Amino acid sequence: MIYGAMKFSVGGTLKLAFRPWVEGLENIPATGPAILASNHLSFSDSFFLPAVLDRKVTFIAKAEYFTTPGVKGKLTAAFFKGVGQLPVDRSGARGAGEAAIKSGIEVLERGELFGIYPEGTRSPDGRLYRGKPGGLARVALATGAPVIPVAMIDTEKVQPPGKVMPKMIRPGIRIGKPLDFSRYHGMEGDRFILRSVTDEVMYEIMKLSGQEYVDIYATAAKRQIAEAAKKKAEAEKAEKAAKTGKGQPEQQGRTGSGA
């Protein structure tokens, strides 16, 4: 009931305001469990995809969205619950991963759609990064549910990080054909199989999205970008200090000669 109301209000508003285009809707099964594995460009990905589907899709969200105190916190929690998001405590990496896997399996066992971002976090620069095998592949092999690759297009341009007001840009969604990994059912303990399944899914997402693929994890890329930005800021600060230091003696000399 709540989901239907939220989908009607939020989904209807998004479709009316941004008019997202969609390809491959016929690849979403009318009934039964399926995993929607998508690239992750923007916070809004988890809203645009459900908005264009007739079926409910459940994503994992940070537990903080559901536990923030105050009126705003309660409204945020109600909103995320209403659009089908499940809270997961990410305070511990291992525990968070297990909680996400358990939640995903429960959603699929109910015959529903489960949405997951194999990269584990948003892309820092619009490129597609290596998928993490611990979540997507384990859920797929434990349940036998088909994996449907999804590509979000230009959603990062709608609301770039740090921007409050969205831009009226028309994003797109490409939905690929279901991938069947039932041949590996029950082999979720084999790390080589998990890696193979994840890479196959990421390859399909890359073909759909047209993104440049980078064979490192997005979390590592974010660290590299942050470190590079820090070094650049330190270098600029040092250069500015050096210029200021050179200018002071010259000014003092001119002052002294004119006294």
Rank of each mutant, 00 (worst) to 15 (best):
R183Y: 08
P50L: 07
K74C: 11
G134I: 12
L75V: 15
L53R: 03
A63S: 14
L14T: 03
A238K: 14
E212F: 09
G111D: 10
S9P: 12
E200D: 04
G176P: 08
E23Q: 14
M1Y: 13
P133Q: 15
L41H: 03
A235T: 05
A221Y: 02
M168C: 01
Q211G: 09
K62A: 04
E250C: 06
G111I: 12
G73S: 13
S91A: 13
I169K: 11
G12P: 11
A235M: 04
T121P: 00
L108W: 02
I28Q: 02
V214R: 05
M168W: 11
Y184Q: 04
A229C: 06
P249W: 06
T121S: 00
A241E: 11
A233D: 09
G253P: 02
A241P: 06
G97Q: 15
N27C: 04
G82H: 08
K232H: 03
Q85C: 04
G73Q: 15
L16F: 09
L208G: 08
K74P: 05
I148C: 11
A63Q: 15
G4T: 15
V158D: 09
A235P: 00
A34R: 13
R130N: 09
K222Q: 12
P69R: 12
G253W: 07
A99V: 04
Y213S: 02
R55V: 04
G115R: 08
E98F: 03
P87W: 15
E119C: 07
P160K: 02
A5E: 05
P118N: 06
E188K: 03
F43T: 12
G186M: 00
R223Y: 02
T198Y: 03
A242K: 13
G247L: 08
I193N: 01
L86N: 10
Y129T: 08
D54W: 02
L25N: 01
W21F: 08
S196Q: 03
E98G: 08
R195Y: 00
I193V: 14
D215G: 01
G247P: 04
V10R: 13
G97F: 13
V71P: 05
G131L: 11
P29L: 03
R191H: 00
K231F: 07
L75T: 15
A96W: 05
P87Q: 15
T58S: 15
L14I: 04
F18D: 14
K81N: 12
A99L: 00
E236W: 12
P124A: 02
G82E: 10
E200W: 01
G162N: 12
F79Y: 13
T76Y: 01
Y203S: 06
Q248W: 07
K246N: 13
K7T: 08
K167N: 03
A93L: 12
S44M: 14
S42D: 07
Q252K: 14
S38R: 06
M187E: 13
A241T: 11
T76N: 05
F66S: 13
G24K: 03
P33R: 14
K240D: 14
Y184G: 03
L194T: 08
A34K: 12
I148K: 10
K246P: 04
G189F: 09
K7W: 15
H185S: 07
T67S: 15
E112L: 12
A142F: 03
D89E: 09
A218D: 02
K157V: 05
